[in-house]
């Protein structure tokens, strides 16, 4: 090896060492970037996937005449309570009858807060979104009222506000021209309360609704879905709803 080549190799080696040093802060910058997301969220704040709110409906306890959950929802979110084709319905009672046996069931149907939410997929503006804790909701600031999500939802859970709205609940802003649906009363959840329908069902209804964190193995809902047979409506679609039903298998 000539002297020049040797020197050149040494120089290149030193350059490589310097480059690796440069890479190291570069890597550090990347981790710092990741850290910023955590910093944004705070230690106990919004962390994606940390919490997944879910609901379990015990159809054996849900009686056909009872509409306490619907009334509570209407009252909490200042809905009209009407069932016209143009009315907003965030939760509705369904009556199902098995044609062969004649056995009938009563159950509430609302936004199923899917993990793979079709309404989020189709939204052209990003208004329909899934929150860090699994709640599917509409950012009305971005909603243009195209109603694509109403078409996409296999559970017919979304409504469109056709008429001007007055006297809203200050915690639940809603108005004409936007799509909307059950959001598990996220304004209540953010304050540590449970959804209005669950509260009403527990106090004046049959206690058929159980609400909790599906990602927390110690929560009552997690332990129940782990021990008894429950059903996700149209599980074949792969939407992975957070609302489960027991007793209609």
């Amino acid at each position: 090896m000539s002297e020049v080549n040797k020197e050149r190799r040494q120089l290149l080696g030193a350059g490589a060492a310097v480059a690796s040093l440069v890479v190291a802060p570069g890597v550090f910058l990347v981790t710092a970037g990741k850290g910023r997301a955590d910093e944004e969220a705070g230690e106990a704040g919004p962390q994606w996937g940390k919490v997944r709110w879910g609901m379990l409906v015990d159809t054996a306890k849900c009686s056909s005449g009872c509409t306490q959950c619907v009334s509570a929802c209407d009252k909490e979110n200042h809905l009209s309570g009407e069932t016209l084709p143009t009315s907003s319905q965030w939760i509705r009672k369904m009556e199902l009858t098995d044609r062969e046996t004649g056995k009938s069931y009563s159950l509430p149907m609302m936004c199923q807060h899917c993990d793979n939410a079709p309404c989020v997929d189709v939204c052209p503006t990003g208004a329909s979104f899934k929150r860090w804790d699994g709640i599917v909701s509409v950012d009305r600031h971005l909603c243009i009222g195209c109603r694509y999500c109403l078409m996409a939802c296999p559970y017919k859970a979304r409504s469109f506000v056709h008429h001007p709205v007055t006297d809203q609940n200050p915690d639940v802003p809603r108005g004409q021209g936007c799509a909307e649906s059950c959001d598990f009363c996220k304004h209540r959840i953010d304050e540590g309360q449970i959804p209005a329908c669950v509260e009403a069902c527990g106090s004046t209804g049959g206690g058929a609704l159980l609400f909790g964190d599906l990602n927390d193995p110690k929560s009552e809902i997690s332990q129940r879905v782990a021990t008894i047979a429950t059903l996700q409506v149209r599980a074949d679609l792969g939407t992975e709803p957070a609302v489960r039903y027991e007793g209609i298998l």
Binding site: P46, R131, W132, D139, R140
Partner: peptide, 9 residues
């Protein structure tokens, strides 16, 4: 944005 999308209230 924080209020609606992250629930920071």
């Amino acid at each position: 944005t924080e209020w609606v999308r992250q629930g920071i209230r």
